[in-house]
Design a protein around this nucleic acid. Sequence first.
DNA 1: ATGATAGGTGACTCTC
DNA 2: GAGAGTCACCTAT
Length: 866
Amino acid sequence: MISCLTHTKYSIDKQPPNPPFQQHFCVFSCPTEEVLLINIYEALKNYRATKVQKMDSERALLNYFITQFARIDPDLVVGHDLQGYQINILSERLNKHDNQNFSKLSKLKRSERQVTEKNFVCWKIELIKSRSYDLDTLCQVILKIKENQRIELEPNEIPKMYKKAEDILKLISFTMQDTAYILKIMYDLNVIPLALEITNIAGNVMSKTLMGGRSERNEFLLLHAFSENDFIVPDKEFNKQETDKSTAAGKKPTYSGGLVLEPKVGFYDNLILLMDFNSLYPSIIQEYNICFTTLPISNSEDDLVLPDRSLPPGILPTEIRKLVESRRQVKKLMNNSEISNDLRMQYNIRQTALKLTANSMYGCLGFSNSRFYAKNLAALVTHKGREILTNTRDLVQKMCYEVVYGDTDSIMINTNILDYDQVIEIGTKIKQEVNKLYKQVELDIEGVFKYLLLLKKKKYAAVTLIRTKNGKLQEKKEYKGLDIVRRDWSQLACEVGKYILDHILSDQSPNDRVNNIHTYLSKIKDDLEQQKVPLSLLFITKQLSKDPKMYADKNSLPHVQVALRYNEQRGGHFKARDTVSYVICDDGSNKPATQRGYHIDELKNSETLKIDVQYYLAHQIHPVVTRICESIEGTDSFQIGKCLGLDTSSFNKPKQMMESVGENIITPESKFQNADKFKFTCFVCKKENTIDSILTNNVPFLQKCSNSDCNARPADYLPHIQNQLVLLIQSYITRYYENRMICEDPACQNVTTRLPIRFVKENPVCTMCQKGVMYRVYTEHQLYTQLTYFQHMFDLCKVNRKPLLGQQVESGYHALRETVEKYLNHSGYSVISLTELFFDFIIRNKHPELIENDIRQPSELIEENE
DNA sequence: ATGATAGGTGACTCTC
DNA sequence: GAGAGTCACCTAT
């Protein structure tokens, strides 16, 4: 069966026509002539939706189609999965019937030497991102049709549809409907206008644009540019690289790329400023005049010499400049409020095409099969990119702002404040400072995060704030790199993960957050066990990177096994670059989960297969949720496993309470509320200065004595202050080593400096009342907090709005901070866990001189402490 | 055959 | 069995 829609006046540079097509037909023949469908002609008489032709044989069907195709003589043919499937079937059937009219269609075959006039839309393009690219999914994603609105038949079901006249009519409807969907998808994506714009920019052949391959477009653009400037272009074969034998998968990078800064992992509820360089690589090429005409070309990554500054702009930078300038002009035209929507759309497509072209220039420099391959140029671009990012980070840090992350062309800055406008102000200041250093490269404010959960390099979630036209702040969630944005995790795992993230990225008490999460997980477990979860949420989708038959080791690759079996048993046609969806089932076997993947049709047609609930709990939901909650207090892998009803016996023990975890959530005010303030006497007036922050009434304490009658500048007698600081710190340390312990029972109040022998769990039992547990009067934690407080107080970077400070004052603070840090670095507290500190207790127990004299039950010592 | 590299994760194999 | 090394996928930029 073949169905076809045609439009004879389609404009490639205008909005899609309405109605979408003018003529239509459907032609079919029955697979076997044994089936006598007496009533089919009768049924067709009443079918008015389209013109239907019933042919007596496949040969006649093909003849009819070819005649119609020749009559229509299309310039553009649109289909879904044409290349590699539909066209192959057509040509195979034509060959089989040795059709004399074959030549009329020969233009279909790319192998023909004759230049093809037909343009086939085969764009696999970057126009959309989708979990899968089968027609059903595309209809849902692009046309927004509902999940079961379109009927998709299993390949093996189709022949059965020819046994009844009413089924044939259904089949005709389905096919016509699909044809209309395909056309609508192409219209909605603006495929042709965009391809036309790109083609006009690059100066290549439009059919090649539609066939994909950026490197050829890039090649044409440069060929035009070089010949206009009277250069001799490189021979097509000149740059041919040795074909890498392991091209399929084992492609190793040949030079270094972008720099990714080590993220300061955690949850932030301050405003975070996101800044990035606009089109960094195109800007670098212009900034440093990187071109084939300004530098020698080599294949060595080490040749990183900049062009002489006196050289005139090269061809490559000039071409990029033209693209960028055109785009700027088109965007200006686009924002004119007086133009029609038609024109605005056209401008928008054009500026998109210009951006895509400018951004693809760098990639082609590093592409080893490009005619303009120049590895050293590509390496120089990325080298400069790394340098710029590093310098920017250092500069921002020098301005006393905390950089928490950055990737290739962006940095995230923790502003430590909550006011949106102030953050924008800071961003503007940073922007000005950075942009002083470059002519072309330009840093800009990209956004402001209200919340940020930073998990790993390239993995984070955030709530962005956007200022709307009426001045209000709008929130928008963003997820980057997390499991929940990947198609190789089931939608169930993604939705559970998203739910939990949304709870973390919201105003809730930490307690409510964790409780909500745990309750939700238990509910999901119940839903899954009671089969309340829709099957479609359980699909796991993976792409075949090569033809399924070409995999050497398919045992651990479920999607490959499913594809092979489906092709073999159910008339499927999975091939290289197709996506395969499968579910993990309990099939009664003991095989590993990787060998229990099944296609949805296999599950539906089987009475023995069941969803493997355990797999989804333990290998889909658990890892996804655990990773998201990694830096959230109050839950961990063990807890999450328990909620999901997993066997937790093999899990790692629950994490030790670490002081550093969640530090970002605690404000300095609450953290240091019990710490002592810093005091020093003025060298001149002898009055005591009490310091609780770096500034008092916006005046730094090193600038002015707190005694208003005293005119001394404390910074002038810095050594005096330093010495007082040292004595103070030493007094705290002495207090810690006094080892004074107090009984928890207020009625007892026993105080001792000797460690009792009897312990209950980790706690020593009071020597006096024999009941209460004893605690240190001054703990290592208190000492550590005290020292950290001083460090914090002398740290200029912790001040949000720094007034202008003199050099002497600034270096004074620096010296005080260093004094504190000398002692802090000596302390093991920040690196040693509490467990090890308790071990320290035990060691002391083995020194008799430290132990109470009245040892009555020495055996307990061994027993308790072993 | 048809821009690039950086990075995380799961599953397997091999080694000690 | 822990760990390193490999492949396969998918994503960020």
